[in-house]
């Protein structure tokens, strides 16, 4: 596991913990979109269908359980907990989230890497995750009054997305066969989409900063290639066998 992936997972975990902290201790879900949370519960349930069949690592299994458990408990709190329920901004959270699900399902049926139930569901979860934040962004725009915890939640979520992109860039150069173009492209789309949306400044700033660092890492890779080409051209010019410095 590379540092971008680990940092991405950690910021994802922090975002969930921030939200749980707000809901569990302050007993408030003001400014939090139930629609987005329901979509995330659907995202994790369709993505982690392999949780009991394929074992990758203890880390993966534990994290999957945390994301499944936390997303369903957030939905439960917002729907059924007496105190939390009261702070839910129902009148502003009117995004028709069901209309996001169907296009994602159709897209997953059309564009996937393998036509099996698990794989199509995985692809569906990737597409849905890319747009699941939309009801939340719309709610933030409508209410305007954004408290610290909600702001931090969205910031960490944006950081997680961007760090995962860096992770895929890194993996593309170190283990190209592992890179799934579906997830990379859909994540890039959501970043571009957010730029167009221009709603939430911290989300945008985090994405911007991390995109800049993606370019930096791309630049470093180019330098490494330049190094290679230097030796390559030299060996060709002097007509000797190519050897690279350790």
């Amino acid at each position: 596991m590379n540092v971008f992936r680990l940092a991405g997972d950690m910021t994802h975990l922090i975002s969930v913990l921030v939200l749980l902290l707000k809901i569990h201790t302050i007993k408030s879900c003001a400014g939090v979109s139930l629609k987005t949370q329901e979509l995330y519960a659907l995202v994790f349930s369709t993505r982690y269908l392999d949780i009991f069949t394929d074992f990758t690592s203890l880390y993966n299994t534990v994290m999957k359980l945390i994301f499944l458990g936390s997303s369903f408990s957030i939905v439960w709190y917002m729907r059924h907990h007496k105190l939390v329920q009261r702070s839910y901004d129902k009148d502003h959270d009117t995004f028709r989230h069901q209309f996001l699900v169907l296009p994602c399902l159709i897209l997953a049926l059309l564009i996937h890497e393998q036509f099996t139930f698990k794989e199509v569901m995985w692809t569906f979860s990737i597409y849905l995750e890319a747009v699941a934040i939309l009801p939340q962004l719309v709610l933030l725009q409508r209410t305007r009054n954004i408290d610290n915890l909600t702001g931090q939640y969205v910031f960490f979520l944006g950081a997680y997305r961007s760090l995962y992109i860096l992770n895929w860039i890194y993996r593309y150069f170190t283990e190209p066969h592992y890179v799934h173009w579906i997830s990379t492209t859909s994540m890039f789309c959501v970043v571009l989409f957010c730029f167009g949306f221009t709603i939430f400044k911290w989300y945008l700033i985090s994405v911007l900063l991390l995109t800049l660092s993606a370019w930096m890492s791309g630049f470093v890779q180019t330098l490494l290639y330049a190094d290679f080409f230097y030796y390559y051209i030299n060996s060709w010019k002097n007509n000797v066998k190519l050897t690279l410095q350790a």
Binding site: D9, T56, N60, Q114, Y178
Partner: peptide, 10 residues
């Protein structure tokens, strides 16, 4: 080339 697609990420 592998039979199933591996998903080792979250």
């Amino acid at each position: 080339d592998s039979e199933t697609v591996e998903h080792d990420e979250l």
